[in-house]
């Protein structure tokens, strides 16, 4: 008993308390069961890269964390707030739960009728009701941080894919989320633009942001991830440090997948 409380205190001091906990997560689309009981814990400040073949459920899991998909059953907790999807969840609790996570989409999904700056300001001003002048400063700083401080008044259509995605990251950060979720953030980009987005993500990781990244960028996984999760068939097959999983995968399915993509 004494040991237990000591170790938990120790963990807290290390800043490694649990940020995300997923228990028994199921998601069904009609007859198709996409997630078949996901259990996952992520500590504060961890960067988790999720890999796996298409149809393995990795994107669905990410979307469940942002409640863009409503899980069939299971419990998700982020920073102490929980949603139990075995019961019906209220719109209000979903809205407040969503604020804990920032989402970066494969296709950026910027608002085309708003400038880069307006895209970033939209959430804090409209959702949080913050003061516009203060938000403008914050948004400018965020766009500066992601390296497009000189293009804040451009519309998305006037920006390259890499620039749009960086605006997307700034837009999510503006809501000051506890966790950042990235859904294949570089998959829609031309190869020469991938680096600039990954660099922003790495910087974010170094600042201690808790991140879950679904990606095919194995170099990013090696360089920035604390742990890599391999998903297949709607379950977590293997979870390990990147160097371990890439060099000594324990599961046959992981080995096969890594052989195919490398």
């Amino acid at each position: 008993m004494v040991d237990f409380s000591c170790s938990s205190d120790f963990n807290l001091l290390q800043g490694s308390f649990t940020m995300i906990s997923i228990k028994g997560l199921y998601k069904q689309f009609g007859q198709l069961e996409v997630l078949k009981g996901i259990n996952l814990e992520v500590k504060k400040g961890q960067v988790i890269v999720v890999i796996g073949p298409s149809g393995s459920g990795k994107t669905t899991m990410l979307r469940c964390l942002n409640v863009l998909e409503t899980p069939t059953k299971g419990v998700i907790s982020i920073e102490g707030q929980s949603l139990d999807f075995s019961k019906s969840v209220s719109k209000k609790s979903v809205a407040s739960f969503r604020r804990l996570t920032g989402m970066v989409f494969q296709n950026y999904n910027l608002f085309p009728h708003k400038t880069a700056l307006e895209n970033v300001m939209e959430g804090p001003v409209i959702v949080k009701g913050e003061d516009k002048t203060a938000v403008r400063k914050k948004a400018q700083a965020l766009l500066e941080k992601v390296g497009i401080g000189d293009k804040i008044d451009y519309y998305p259509a006037q920006l390259s894919g890499g620039q749009q995605q960086r605006v997307g990251i700034a837009r999510a950060l503006a809501m000051e989320p506890e966790v950042m979720l990235f859904d294949e953030p570089t998959s829609a980009l031309d190869p020469e633009l991938v680096g600039e987005v990954l660099k922003v993500m790495k910087d974010l990781a170094l600042e201690g942001m808790t991140m879950i990244v679904v990606t095919h960028e194995m170099r990013f996984a090696r360089e920035a991830a604390d742990e890599v999760i391999f998903m297949d068939g709607g379950v977590v097959v293997e979870r390990n440090k990147p160097e371990e999983i890439f060099t000594h995968p324990k599961e046959e399915r992981t080995r096969k997948f890594l052989n195919m993509i490398q």
Binding site: N66, L68, K91, A95, R98, R99, T101, G102, M103, F105, N107, N109, L110, F111, E122, G123, I126, V127, K128, R171, A172, A174, M175
Partner: peptide, 17 residues
């Protein structure tokens, strides 16, 4: 595109917003 709704929801917007 559906992604526009999702982007709105992802920054905490309600349906009406």
């Amino acid at each position: 595109p559906k992604g526009q709704w999702e982007a709105g929801y992802s920054i905490g917007m309600s349906y009406t917003q």
